[in-house]
Amino acid sequence: MEQQTPLLEVKNFSVSFKQYGKGLKQNVTQVISNFTLDLYPGEIMAIVGASGSGKSLLAHAILGILPSNAYINGSIKYKGEELTQKDKEQLRGKEISLIPQSVGYLDPLMKTGKQIDSPLKSVKSTVKSIMSRFHMADGVKNKYPFQLSGGMARRVLIGTALTSGAHLIIADEPTPGLHKSMVDETLSTLKELAGNGRGVLMITHDIDLAFIIADKIAVFNKGRSVEVVDAKAFEASPDYVKHPYSKALWHALPQNGFHSIRSKDYGDDIDAIQDAQGGEA
């Protein structure tokens, strides 16, 4: 891919939380440490790691929706410009769109058709075409989110990304609860967006999905990006990755035999190996 200005640059980024314990003692917990990645237009990057490793917090940081007790360090740039909190508030839902993990992000007081519809004249997709694409009956557009099944509500969320006109799409675990045909359609949608010059950041613990869709995989462990690798090379062999956690992820896949690995084979990072084999790889 021709080198150009990254759509999204995250450099030496950290997130920590301040909390009060017994006796009003203040504790600081660092969840993301020195995270770095570059995402280019037309590229799909998957952030892969076990559930609970802090992946979703990166999405929330980019969108500026972290809780008030969160403290951040490092740099997040969008189209070469540093993102301030004001920028994040102005861009989210417009130039930066989230397909969230929770269907609770839908507006409970707005009918689903209106949530899918786009105010942008430049967006050609209509509510009718989106609903047809994701196998939603016409009557669904007149229902409120609480009237939808979990899978149907998730389809609505994916539809909103298509009509947002966003240049950067962050898909946070976009496929749980969906039938395989809808999983395939969702991945096809993300590929279509990237093919139209959008940048797609997909957060997942399902590394097989990453192999299907991603150009690159950022392997995430305990709040750190341990390495960024070419997705096809990683799929082919663990020899193309360097970190023991990445190797452990590869070996833990069903098609690779659920093989356990020994520290003497891959170095002394015992914690990383045990996390990969015990987490949702």
Rank of each mutant, 00 (worst) to 15 (best):
M182P: 07
S56Y: 04
H243L: 07
H259R: 15
K143C: 14
Q255D: 14
P67K: 02
G267S: 09
I76T: 10
T36Q: 09
A236P: 06
L162F: 13
L57K: 00
F13G: 00
S97M: 14
S181W: 05
P254Y: 04
P6R: 01
L109I: 09
S181R: 10
R133Q: 14
K124H: 13
L7W: 07
G49F: 08
S149Q: 08
E95I: 00
T84F: 02
Q101P: 07
N34C: 13
G165E: 01
G93Q: 01
E235H: 13
I32S: 05
M152P: 11
Q30M: 06
L63D: 03
K25W: 05
S53P: 07
N34P: 14
K232Y: 08
V31F: 12
E227M: 04
G257D: 05
L39Y: 02
L83T: 02
V15Y: 09
R92F: 11
Q90F: 13
F220V: 05
L8A: 00
L83N: 03
K128W: 12
V123Y: 07
R92V: 01
A171P: 10
H205F: 11
E280D: 15
K22L: 14
G54P: 02
L190G: 02
T36H: 11
K88V: 08
Q26Y: 04
G104P: 03
M136K: 04
E81P: 06
D138Y: 15
G197I: 07
G80S: 00
G104V: 06
R154S: 08
T186P: 09
P108K: 01
N69Q: 01
S149G: 12
V48G: 09
D269Q: 11
T163D: 03
A194S: 11
K216Q: 15
D172S: 08
T189R: 05
V200K: 06
L253T: 09
E81C: 08
A50M: 13
Q4G: 15
L178N: 05
I130N: 05
H243R: 00
K222L: 12
